[in-house]
Amino acid sequence: MSKTVLHVNFAKGFRGGERQTLLLLQELSHKGYTQTLLTRRHAELAKKVSALALENVVIIEVKKPYLLSLSLLKKADLVHAHETKAAQFAFLGHLFFKTPYIITRRVDNAIKNNGFTRAMYRYAHKTVVLSRAILEEVKKIEPRANLSIIPSAFSKLSVSPHEVEKIKERFSGQFVIGNIGELDNDHKGQYYLIEAMKELLPRYANMHLLFLGKGKDEEAYKAQASSLKNVTFEGFVSNVGDYIATFDLFVFPSLREGLGSILLDVMQAKVPIVASNAGGIPDVICHEKNGLLVAPKDVSALAEAIERLYLDKTLREQLIESAFQDVDLFSPEKMAERYAALYAEVLG
C-alpha cells in the first residue's frame, strides 16, 4: 500500500509559495506519489490544482477553525506544511497523533520567538528553507531545528508569441525595464526604483518602467511617479510569461526576500537582472556573473547599475547566458527530487 503525503497550505491567494506548492504536487504526481492537498475553502491553490487533474492527488478544502479538521492528519504518513498556519496545524497534529511533519519556510522576516514556535521547529522532522538568509532566521530562535536548504523552482511560464507581439507593439522603440511583485515598499522596495528612474529618464528618454502587480503602496507609487512620462502600472496580469518576454531588463530592488523565485523565471526567459543584495537573492544572483547586485535602498547604485546594462549590450548578453546556464539547477524536477529524498528519510 502506497504511503500518503499530506500537503497543507491555508493561504487565501496564489502567490509565490502557492505556485511552488503546485509545482511540487505536479512533479511528485509524475513520480507516482499518493498525495492529499489540504487548503482553506475556495482557495486559489485548490482551484488551480483541481484544474490540472493530477493523478493520485486528492484535494480537501476545510473551513475555519482549522483545528476542527485536525483529525485528518491522523491518516497521513507524512505532513508537509507550506506556510506558517499550516506549520502550526502540523505541529498540533504531531502532538495528538504522532504524525511526522516537515515545514517549508519561504520568507526571511523575523520569526516570533515564543515557546510554541520554538517547539514547532524543534519537533519538525525537517525544516526546509529556500536560502541561507532564512536558515539564519530559524537558527536564531531554535538552534536545534533540523534544517535543509531546498530552493524554489522556476515555473515554466507559458508564452504566447501573439500576445508578446501585442505587448511589444505597445512599447515599440522603448527599453522596457520590468518589475514584478506586490507593490509593497516594506518588502519589495519599488520606491527606490522609481527614484532611480527620476535620475535616468532625463538622460535616456526611451527607458520605460513597467510594473506588474498590485498592493498597498500602489497609489503612493503613482503619486511618486506622477512627474515621469514613461512609467506604467499594469496591475495584476495572468500572462506573466508574455510580459517577461518583452522586458529588456528586470530590476528587483527588494529590501527582504526569502529567495525571489520570480528571478528564476526571468533567468529562464533570458532577461538580464539588477537586484538588491538582500535576503536570499545572493543565493540566486552572483554579482557580475549572472546579474548585478546593489545595496538595498541605494538609489544612486541602482541607477548606475541600470545605466550600465542599458549602455552595454555585450555585458547584458554575457549575464543572460550565464544566468540561463545556472537556472537549470532550479528546475521543478530537481526541486521534487530533493523533496522526494527528504520524504524517503521519514517514510522509509
Rank of each mutant, 00 (worst) to 15 (best):
S2W: 14
K3N: 08
T4A: 12
V8I: 14
F10K: 05
G17Y: 04
E18D: 14
L22F: 10
L23F: 13
Q26D: 15
E27S: 07
Y33K: 06
Q35P: 04
T36Q: 14
T36E: 00
L37I: 12
R40H: 04
R41I: 14
K47W: 14
L52R: 13
L54T: 08
E55C: 08
E55L: 10
V58G: 03
I60E: 14
I60R: 04
I60D: 10
Y66F: 15
Y66I: 05
L68H: 07
L70H: 11
D77R: 04
D77Q: 07
A81W: 00
E83W: 03
A87I: 09
Q88V: 00
A90K: 06
I103D: 03
N113H: 06
F116P: 02
R118E: 00
Y123Q: 12
Y123N: 15
K126E: 11
S131M: 08
R132D: 11
E136P: 00
E137L: 04
V138N: 00
K140G: 01
K140R: 14
E142Y: 04
E142K: 03
P143H: 02
P143E: 01
R144F: 01
R144Y: 08
L147W: 09
I149Q: 13
P151L: 05
P151I: 11
S152C: 11
K156S: 12
S160L: 02
E165F: 14
I167P: 15
K168N: 13
E169M: 09
S172W: 11
I177D: 01
N179G: 15
I180H: 13
H187L: 15
H187M: 07
K188Q: 08
Y192T: 06
E195S: 15
A205G: 01
N206Y: 08
L210Q: 00
L212S: 08
L212A: 04
K214I: 09
K214T: 13
K216I: 07
E218H: 11
E219T: 01
A223D: 13
A225Q: 11
A225H: 04
S227N: 14
S227Y: 06
V237R: 15
I244F: 05
V251P: 01
S254Q: 02
L255Y: 02
R256Y: 09
L259H: 07
K270G: 12
P272A: 04
I273W: 03
V274R: 09
S276V: 09
I281W: 05
V284H: 04
L293I: 03
V294C: 10
A295V: 12
P296A: 05
S300E: 08
L302T: 06
I306L: 02
E307T: 05
D312N: 14
R316S: 02
I320T: 06
F324I: 00
Q325R: 12
F330W: 09
S331T: 14
E345N: 09
